[in-house]
């Protein structure tokens, strides 16, 4: 009989991914409302210290799954092992943080059990005694309430920042080792060591004021008006991914899931629609200003101040006004 909520704990280089605690928090909340037991599972080789850390959270159990073939993350290794854990533990719901690693293996795991993964959710509600999950569609322009259908287990991943990992209730969980059958030949991916490209020249995380530019700027030569605005403000320039993809600004100016994560005093977003991959990198800013021609752009959802209009009019006017103020 399927029962309980099982949370996937991700780790790299001996550190638990903080996003996993957001998934633990989600499990605590949903578990309390639906009267379900909660457990976490951690895969690897030599993960007892990490399991002890997770066991300090309010959970009924923490499972460890250890194997030489789980020393490095691979989608094959994790999917094969996780499937066997699900057969042993029989959870009703499997919760994960929607990290790059989860994106890499979770759809395969769910498909191997003929189940859906309701991915990248931003919240849940309980309707008729069952959880309904909210996910963003059209890059955050719309929300959709989604239910997994058919038999359990159901698989759900939550977008980073959807729950507060630091609000996890403390507790004392029992740690239990599970055994799986996994041999090296079943793992077809051979990963090499993780690396960073040449060190980022600019550390935007320390900048108090940031002016960020997006697709709305249309052409490389128009970046100049953003540079003038940033110079007038004494701000650093940043960009959304498409701008860096086009080499209009260097990669180390990119904000978002694949770039830097910043929390400045002021984040002024110009011509940025606010795709979720961008928002995760800047939504912690204290004050957010958005200038965009599309009143429905998701950036306005998180902005403190908004101007709907042509950035080619607004930006020069703003530059002139700031120069006037500074005189």
């Amino acid at each position: 009989m399927a029962n309980g909520i099982l949370v996937f704990i991700e780790h790299v280089e001996g550190q638990i991914n903080r996003a996993s605690y957001e998934a633990v928090r989600a499990a605590q909340l949903i578990g309390a409302q639906l009267n379900q037991e909660t457990a976490a599972v951690i895969f690897g080789n030599g993960v007892s210290n990490l399991a002890t850390e997770v066991a300090g959270k309010k959970l009924n159990r923490v499972y460890t799954v250890e194997s030489d073939s789980l020393s490095s993350y691979t989608p094959d290794g994790y999917s094969i092992a996780f499937k066997q854990v699900i057969e042993q533990v029989q959870p009703a719901l499997v919760l994960m943080a929607h990290t790059y690693e989860v994106r890499d293996f979770a759809p395969k795991l769910a498909a191997s059990l003929q189940r859906a993964l309701v991915g990248d959710c931003i919240g849940y509600k309980i309707e008729d005694g069952a959880a309904v999950f909210t996910r963003q569609i059209f890059q955050g322009k719309l929300s959709a309430d989604v239910v997994p259908t058919g038999d359990t287990p159901h698989f759900v991943s939550f977008q980073i920042g959807s729950f507060r990992g630091d609000e996890c209730e403390a507790g004392q969980a029992e740690v239990q080792a599970l055994t799986v059958n996994l041999n090296a030949e079943q793992v077809r991916q051979q990963p090499e060591a993780r690396f960073k490209e040449a060190k980022a020249a600019v550390d935007l995380t320390q900048a108090p004021l940031i002016v960020a530019v997006g697709r709305g700027i249309k052409e490389q030569k128009n970046i100049e008006i953003i540079e003038k605005l940033a110079a007038a403000m004494g701000a650093e320039i940043a960009a959304s991914r498409p701008i860096c993809d086009n080499d209009w600004l260097p990669m180390d100016r990119q904000i978002g899931s694949s770039g830097q994560t910043v929390a400045p005093k002021l984040y002024l977003a110009v011509g940025i629609s606010g795709a979720i991959q961008h928002l995760v990198g800047m939504k912690g800013a204290r004050t957010i200003v958005a200038i965009n021609k599309d009143a429905e752009a998701p950036i306005f959802e998180i902005a403190d101040y908004g101007i709907v209009g042509d950035l080619f009019e607004v930006v020069p006017a703003l530059t002139a006004e700031i120069e006037k103020m500074k005189q």
Partner: peptide, 12 residues
């Protein structure tokens, strides 16, 4: 057959 179903779509 869908394994997940959209119940409703709305502006956030």
């Amino acid at each position: 057959a869908p394994k997940q179903q959209i119940k409703r779509v709305y502006f956030p």
